[in-house]
Structures are given as C-alpha cells and as structure tokens.
Design a protein around this nucleic acid. Structure first.
Length: 721
DNA sequence: GACCTGCTGCGGATTG
C-alpha cells in the first residue's frame, strides 16, 4: 500500500481488513473515492464495469467515517434494485463489518420478521434495502424512520444505471428527497454505476435540484480485448424437411460451439429463450450426453433461477444459460467464456452490459451474434431485402466500439408515480396541504415538469376518484378508496405487474404465465426448458397443473415494444452508404449484407427518402422509433393509411405525389403538440395508476413519453425540401 | 417484435 496516498486516511480497522485481503494495492476508483467520501460534502458517482471493486470503493471510506463518528442509529443506507444483490452484498460485507464491529442488516420482502424487529428495536450500522421496502418504512413508520436515520451519514445506491429514466427511478428520487425532508438535512449520495454514457446526466438524475456539488470517479482501467463474430443464417423461403430452417442451423451451431464450457445465450424474448433451451437440451439427449443448457427468465420460479445461478457460480460443470435480460443485471454468477446473441440486440447499452459478463481473468471477451434473415423472393419485403437486422447489428457494434450508449429519456412526467408519491406522503403525515405537497414533490422534488395549475387539476382528479378528500381545516387526507389502495401491500411498487397463472408439476411451482394469454387443457407447451402437457386449469386459484409430454412450443408471454434510438438508425445509414463489410462477418453474413448494400444503392436511398413500390409508398426517415412513430401518426391524422415497422413508414394505396402533398400540408399547418397528438390515441393507460387520471391529464404524460414533435417536424421539413 | 424489478400485518398453529 506504499503507493497509496490516501490509504492512511482510512480507519485502522478498515486498513486491517485490507491487509487481511492481501491486496497488493487499491484499485484506481478505490483510491480516488477515499477523500471525497470522507469529506462527505458532495455526492459521488463511482463508475466502472462489473467486478472492478465499486462496492469496496464506496464502503471502505464510508465505514471508516461511521466507525470514527460512531453515530447513534443507522449510519449508511444502501439501496439496491434487486433482493438477490442485497443478499450478495450482505455476505460480502460481513468480514469488514465484523472487524469494525458494526452491524449489517438486509431489509426486503424475503427477510424474516425477527431480523427486522431486532433492527427496529436497536437501529444501527448499515441497512441494505429495496426502494419498495423504504417506501413502506416512510409510509408506515415515519416516526421510527426519523429517529433511526437521524444520524445517517450516506445513502449508497447500487446499479444506479438500472434506475435512470424509469418509474422506479423516479420513485427512488422521490424517496431520497422525502427522507432528506423528514431529517431536515442533506445526506451525501453515492451512486455505483456501470460506465454507460454521459456521466453528467447521471449526476443530474442523482440529485435533480443540485443542492450540493458532485464528484465523478470513473475507472481508467481499460476493458479486456474483445473478439466479435457475426454469423448470418438464411431461412429458406419454403419450409421443407430437407432444407433446415435458420433456427435449426443456429441451434445446431450453438450446440457444437458452446458445449463443454460455460456461456450465456441472449435470445431477446422469453418464448425464444425457451425454444432454444429445449432444442439444445433435446440435442444433448439425442447424443446421450448430460444436458448443460438451461433457460433463465423472469417468468421462471425463483428456485429454478437460483439453482441455475448457483450452478454457474460453482464453475464445476459446463453450463450454458439461455436467458433474457435477467442475467444482464448484477447478480453474481462469475464470468463465462463467451456471449452468444441470437437476433439483433435492442440497444447498445444492453449489448455492452452483456459483454461485461464474459472474459475470465486476462481472457478476451467473446461475442458471437447469430442473425437470421429471410431468403429473397419476388414478394420479399423491403426490410428483408435491405437486410436491416444484420445492418443494425453492425451499426450497434460500431457504436459500441466508439463507446456511445443510448442516453436515458428526460423530461418525463411520471404521473402514475406522482399518484403513488402523493398518496404515500398523505398517508405518512396523516394530512397535508396541497401547497406543501407541490412544494415537496414538484418544486424541489423530482416531478419538476409539473407546474402548480397542473398539480391542482391532478389533485382534483384524485378527489373525484375518492382517493383523497379535503378535511375541514383544508388539509388533504386519504379518501376511502385511497385508504384501501395505500393499505394493501401492492402499493409499494411504482411499476405495474400483470396477473398471472402459476404452473405446477408434482406440487412444485415452475413459474408463471400471463393471464391474458391463456393456455387450454391438453395443450402442449415448453417451459423451464422441458416439454409439458396442460393436465388441468384451476381458474379460481389461478393454477395450471402440468404433466410431462414430448411435443409443444413455448407459451405466449406479454410485453411492450422497445425503442431503437435515432443514433443507431443514422449509423445504419452510414453503414449502407460506406458499403464497408466488417471483417468479423462470416461468409454467409458477408453475402447477406452485400445483398442489402446492393438493394440500398439500387433504390438510391442515399438521396431519396420517399419512394414507391406498387401501390405502397415507403418513407425512410433513418431515425429512431419515437420520431418514426410520431411521423406515422401525423400522416394518419391527415388521412393516409400509414404504419411503421423497423424504422420504415409504409403507406398503402397511395402515391409519392399524394404523400408529398400531405407532408407539405402538415408542415404548413399549425404545429401540433405532443399532448394534442396523444388526444387522438384512444387508449393512453400505460402505467400503474394512469387509470385514476382523466384522459386530458394522462395525455400530457403519454405525449411526452411517446412522441418527439420537434424531431418529427424537422424530418418532414427535410423531406419537403 | 416485445426485457426486468417488488411487497405488510395479522391471525393461528406449532414448537421449545
């Protein structure tokens, strides 16, 4: 530790723990974090990849501080998006905290009541909690919370990037703000984040009102080397027995490439995840070898997922997890040999996170993309001919190498979360004046897009639904319906979850399927990587009993669309324009992408954005889904039969002349606002509590989230020129 | 073409 300038500033117990670890030196982020955290006069953002020692960078100085000051009550509040991560960190912090004689308490829905009671009687040390459990503490135990946290020194937020831009992130911002208001002091926030994009934006999200300064600590340690291969697979036009489909070719290749070592296969959807896992497991059975391919996604039971995570962690048996974004998050599964991505990734940021899972000590990260495309026939669609899936992958890899990542959406209203936070505050204090609510939540809090008149209309709407009511002294209190809503445990989450049926075999729950995509008796399905038949359905108890079977395909899961960003589509256009074929393409992918380039230039898409094919007119904005959707709706409102897919707008039964006329008409007419466009959308209920709001208010949030007016008009202006 | 996260308080039975 002789090269460390700040090591001596740590508490002697902390230094003893570091010596016990036999570390040769502190990592760069750990060294740099010591002074700003000990000073405790600013927020700190520690940004580094997985396994770079972020946890220690935050806790070594933070623990030094609370041991030195020895405050009554809880000294450090750690907030995590995952219960599993709290359990991991609880184990990791034991050794350090034993030496320092400070207690660590995990606090989430699965933690036993006895452990919580112990902490409630004698609050102290470090508390590890989820946002939902913190919500419950503020709402139900306001006075205990005030006492327990009165000497709080730090709030540490793990996996902070997971929160940015979401309803849950907005809830977290509000909870931290409410806690500071309750304690009447500012608590330094320490955010641990992956290196994804603009760190100034991260700081802005960490403390939107900028009450104290922030310090950004980014790891300079470079990522390990990266090896990429993009493999193309053509699906034959006509399905027959002799020619294998691209799915068969992909699963055969996955089997031969991956078997024998440990890997992650990202397949983008739960249905495809199940399909691939069961096909690979069938291949093992056919070859009389033990199965080593297992699915992992959010609809599988906790037991099934945890046993797979444990098998990966143990590293004693070769194990490949075919997974959705569940294994992209920070659960500790060790490193795998390689990553396989089947079909194009949704975002550059998620591709980066997935890559971070591969590359054992000193080994390079290995990424193989398996991208299917359709064989071209006379009737092939424009998107197939342009080979957009393959080109999207190339564009995303280009951006990944440039270290560009999708920024989080800003200026969202999060009205549903505002319903939750308003009710929670009223529940916490018993009665609150409207002006106090607005001052806390909107003026100084995270809902800064909401001005006073809008909030008054919003409160009136809650009153009409009997969620709140006004007492004789003018204070707002919970209405009968509000009491019921706030009193139920489902109130603590900011996000909506659909109703589900549980799937059971031999008394064991395997997982769940959404209720709006029902299964029928004797239907054969694939689930948890195995084949089943539905034996019986108990609609009352929402339970489906399974028996073993031989056939079947995965059930339908529900989900929303995901937006591709403007920069990705612009990079795709650059790829077409340059016609450069990357060296990491295999022969099939090369010829596929070559076909796409030829078609792009045959249509002269470098110069033309509107073109006709038969009775259909296409528009190629080369922009993200948000702007493309906005333009599509503007065209529809002007009488065209427009729809969009994959970044292209398709107008049936029209001509380029007619489309140009309509575009001219749109840009010469008064510009519509996002809210005005949302007025035309019949169903704008998206988030958990949207149902309580009148359409006029809901549309404000919906419009801001779904449309980009300036982007759409500027694109239409370009086309008109 | 479509991802993920999370949750209380109480009654009653059982055990030491």
């Amino acid at each position: 530790m002789s090269d460390s300038a700040n090591f001596e500033k740590l508490h002697k117990g902390v230094k003893r723990w570091i010596w016990n670890q036999k570390w040769a030196s502190l990592r760069d982020i750990q060294e740099e974090a010591i002074v700003p955290i000990l000073n405790a006069d600013s927020d700190v953002i520690i940004s580094a990849s997985t396994a770079a020692g972020k946890t220690e960078a935050a806790f070594l100085p933070a623990c030094s501080k609370i041991v030195d000051q020895n405050p009554d009550g809880i000294g450090i509040l750690y907030i995590s998006p995952l219960k599993a991560l709290i359990n991991d960190q609880y184990r990791r912090l034991q050794g350090l905290c034993d030496i320092l004689d400070i207690s660590v308490t995990p606090w989430h829905g699965d933690v036993s009541r006895s452990l919580k009671l112990k902490q409630q009687r004698n609050p102290n040390g470090i508390l590890l909690i989820t946002p939902e459990s913190l919500e419950s503490l503020l709402l139900n135990q306001g006075s205990w919370t005030l006492k327990a946290f009165s000497n709080l020194c730090y709030i540490i937020i793990d996996e902070f990037h997971e929160f940015i831009g979401s309803e849950r992130g907005c809830q977290l911002q509000s909870l931290m703000h409410r806690l500071e208001f309750l304690l009447q002091k500012t608590i330094p926030r320490i955010a641990l984040s992956a290196t994804l994009g603009d760190m100034e934006q991260v700081a802005d999200y960490l403390r939107p009102n900028h009450k104290i300064p922030f310090k950004i600590i980014e790891s300079t340690a470079s990522h390990s080397d990266l090896k990429i291969q993009l493999r193309g697979y053509l699906s034959p036009h006509e399905q027959n027995e002799e020619v294998p489909s691209s799915f068969e070719k992909i699963t055969n290749d996955l089997y031969s490439i991956l078997r024998g070592k440990s890997h992650l296969v990202f397949a983008n959807s739960r249905a495809r995840t199940e399909d691939i896992a069961v096909t690979l497991s069938d291949l093992c059975e056919k070859s009389f070898v033990p199965n080593e391919f297992f699915p992992h996604h959010g609809s599988l039971s906790k037991e099934i997922r945890e046993s797979l995570e444990a098998r990966l962690q143990k590293e004693s048996l070769p194990t490949t997890a075919v997974c959705t974004l569940t294994l992209e998050l920070g659960i500790d599964i060790g490193k795998v040999t390689s990553i396989a991505q089947v079909t194009a990734p949704h975002s550059v940021a998620s591709l980066r996170q997935r890559l971070g899972r591969s590359g054992r000590r000193g080994e390079p990260s290995i990424l193989r993309l398996f991208i299917p495309e359709q064989e071209i026939t006379k009737s092939s669609h424009l998107l197939d001919r342009l080979r957009v899936h393959t080109v999207q992958c190339i564009a995303m890899i280009n951006l990944l190498l440039k270290k560009w990542y999708e920024p989080a959406p800003t200026n969202q209203y999060h009205l549903s979360t505002l319903v939750q936070q308003t009710l929670s505050l009223i529940g916490q204090y018993g009665g609150v004046h409207a002006t106090q609510l607005w001052a806390l939540l909107c003026e100084s809090g995270p809902f800064s897009s909401i001005d006073q008149p809008l909030y008054v209309a919003f409160l009136r709407a809650l009153g009409e639904k009997d969620l709140i009511t006004q007492a004789s002294d003018g204070q707002l209190i919970l209405g009968a319906k509000g009491e019921r809503l706030v009193g139920h445990y489902s109130f603590y989450t900011a996000f909506k979850t659909p109703e589900e049926y549980r799937l059971e075999y031999h008394g064991k729950i395997l997982g769940s399927v959404p209720i709006d995509k029902p299964l029928v008796e004797s239907q054969q399905i694939v689930f948890a990587g195995k084949r089943w038949e539905v034996k019986s359905i108990d609609h009352e108890g929402k339970l489906i009993i399974l028996k073993k079977a031989k056939g079947g395909s995965p059930p339908t899961f529900s989900g929303d669309g995901l937006f591709v960003h403007d920069i990705v589509r612009q990079e795709m256009r650059r790829v077409y324009h340059n016609r450069s074929i990357p060296i990491y393409l295999d022969e099939e992918a090369k010829s596929i992408v070559y076909e796409g380039f030829e078609y792009y230039h045959a249509l002269n898409l470098d110069d033309i954005q509107v073109f006709q094919s038969g009775k259909t007119v296409f528009i190629a904005p080369w922009l993200g889904d948000q702007i493309t959707n906005t333009i599509t709706i503007l065209l529809k409102l002007n009488g065209l039969l427009a729809s969009c897919f994959g970044g292209f707008i398709e107008i049936t039964n029209s001509t380029t002349d007619e489309v140009h006329d309509v575009i001219r008409n749109i840009i010469e007419s008064p510009k519509l606002t996002a809210t005005e466009i949302a007025n035309y959308i019949p169903d704008t209920i998206l988030e958990k509590h949207d149902y309580f709001l009148p359409k006029a208010i809901r549309d404000i949030g919906y419009g801001a989230r779904s449309f980009n007016i300036d982007g759409a008009y500027s694109c239409l202006n370009d086309i008109a020129k």
